[in-house]
Amino acid sequence: MAGGATIEGSNTTATYEQARTWLLLPAWITLAVLVLTPVLLMLVYSFLTKEFRGGVIWEFSFAAYEQFFCDRGLFGDDPCSMEWTYINIFWRSIWQAGLATLLCLCIGFPTAYFIATRPERVRPMWVFLITIPYWVNLLIRTVSMRFMLREEGPVNNFLTWTHIIDEPIQMINTNFAVQVGLFYSYLPFMVLPIYAAVERYNFTLSEAAADLYATKWVILRRVLIPTVKPGVIAGCILVFVPSLGAFLAPDLLGGAKNFMIGSLIEEQFKGNAGNWPFGAAASMILLSSVLVLLMIYARSQVRPRRVHSEGA
């Protein structure tokens, strides 16, 4: 079914095929000049020799990548053995970002669905309500979130008062707090794309499925979610990918006892290390792994899905 229209007739294909280049040109130019150029510069930097305390010396060197994969001991003169430190940091960040994304999805999808099923007139108001908290600076919001989660904070007080727990739980400075930090930083980035997709959903599909004796949860799983999948995926990308490099909120809540990818790279440019090529190399490794994943997704999306079109 997918891509069927492409073969059927030229009029039904790409409505904007001729204008395509012009439509994409502003994005291409902006991103090529302001993002791609700096990224290429950093790619070059990752293969240069580091200058002590920041900066680079224009001599080719593989040292940055070697540092990533090769452990030479505290004094740097042992024979090379596999370096797990940075791979572990990457793995930890991926894992945390993944859990945060899942958390966002669990809360964000019902919220988005709920908003999309409100009367049309009040929907924009709901969407505003979701983003307004983000007008307040992240640092301030995080300090307050930390206050909420403290041992004698409102959350613990509430839970002990309702006898859900007997003793206050230690929440700040734990892995859980790191995920809460990421989750809290990016929640609207899950809600809004899903809302935009669900808002379009044609409920006659659900009714048709119900007529065929599908239960509500089967409809949700088999009809609704596949139809709004682009929104879910967009939301997941917008939460997961920035989470990988984020560190401020997770560090403030989680105690920063372990580097995240973001804080590791930040340290190379803004810390004592001043090792720009290594920071650049770590970024390139992060970038290329995410890019590969996204490209695979993009390839699978070459034609918009038309599986569940109206009247099917």
């Binding site: 430190t85 572990n88 920063a256 580097f259 004592n272």
Partner: peptide
């Protein structure tokens, strides 16, 4: 020495 310091610091926070 700074490089050793960096390794010590990374080891603390790895």
């Amino acid at each position: 020495t700074q490089e050793v310091y960096d390794r010590i610091w990374t080891a603390v926070k790895k």
